[in-house]
């Protein structure tokens, strides 16, 4: 398959739906294995921090969620750009399917940050460059969610969300460099591409495992939500009707006779 063919296929909801069923399962199982082992390792086996004691173990939740919350936003920015340039309908579906997950991850990063801040900084919340820019990220997610609800025409809503997603990407480097640009209470980056982590391996390996696990969970969740979005938007096509009848027949929620009686319906051939 050439790259150009792959690009065209990725634009086809039907093709994506066909190949993505097993993908969601594989990613989901990988996520479960990685997240359970990374968390047990981090909670029970990693050594306590010499200054923070055991409260530092929140890092195994806080850092992965914050990283994935920003990656999810980056993905929406890319999807938004693709939608605006090539009008690919799958890009809009990716954008819509990512919003709820990214929103909950951002909220969780802020929540675990607050819970970690209390014993470490002595306050649940500080108006610090890192925490404030993460709060802006949460509001961007709220904005994307509300914008789609507010515009009834799907195509208009998609383009408005794409513009907001693309413009909001400016916040990502601000979050990343906030700890370097401004005086801040927040500690610096845990992982850097150019140098070894400041922590010993028995502390950072479980963290890397959890980061990887959460990416897998994000992948599985995105695929799952995307499949629902595809079925909703392509509900009138013959292939989705056949699929719905087939799936629910397997689940014994509808009989074979009834499916035959309904036929392909007016959506056939589209």
């Amino acid at each position: 398959m050439t790259l150009k063919e792959l690009w065209h296929r990725l634009g086809s909801p039907r093709w994506f739906y066909r190949i993505s069923g097993p993908l969601a399962w594989v990613l989901g199982i990988l996520a479960l294995v990685l997240l359970v082992s990374g968390s047990v390792w981090g909670l029970a086996f990693a050594p306590p921090d010499y200054q923070q004691g055991n409260s530092f173990r929140i890092i195994y939740i806080h850092v992965p969620t914050a990283i994935v919350a920003q990656s999810a936003y980056m993905l929406m920015g890319v999807a938004g750009a693709i939608l605006l340039v090539w009008r690919m309908k799958m890009a809009d579906m990716v954008l819509a399917a990512t919003v709820p997950f990214g929103m909950t991850m951002t909220a969780l990063a802020l929540f675990t940050g607050a819970v970690w801040g209390k014993p470490t900084w002595g306050a649940w919340w500080v108006w610090d460059a890192r925490t404030t820019s993460m709060l802006v990220l949460l509001f961007l997610y709220f904005g994307l969610y509300a914008l789609r609800q507010a515009i009834p025409r799907q195509e208009t809503a998609g383009r408005a969300c794409a513009v907001l997603a693309v413009v909001g990407v400016i916040n990502i480097p601000i979050i990343k460099y906030s700890v370097d640009w401004w005086l801040t209470l927040h500690q610096g980056a845990t992982f850097r591409l150019t140098e070894a982590p400041a922590m010993p391996p028995e502390m950072w390996i479980p963290l890397a495992v959890n980061v990887l696990g959460l990416y897998c969970f994000f992948g599985a969740n995105l695929v799952g939500r995307l499949r629902a979005e595809i079925v909703r938007r392509e509900a009138r096509t013959a292939w989705v009707r056949a699929l719905a009848a087939g799936e629910l027949q397997t689940a014994r929620e509808v009989s074979e006779d009834e499916v035959l009686r309904m036929g392909p319906g007016p959506g056939a051939g589209r």
Binding site: R227, M262, G263, G265, P266
Partner: peptide, 19 residues
């Protein structure tokens, strides 16, 4: 999980109404 099930169920409900 719920969204996937509901989306398929909605398609089937529509087919039932039409039939």
């Amino acid at each position: 999980r719920r969204q996937q099930r509901r989306a398929l169920q909605d398609v089937l409900d529509r087919m039932r109404r039409e039939a």
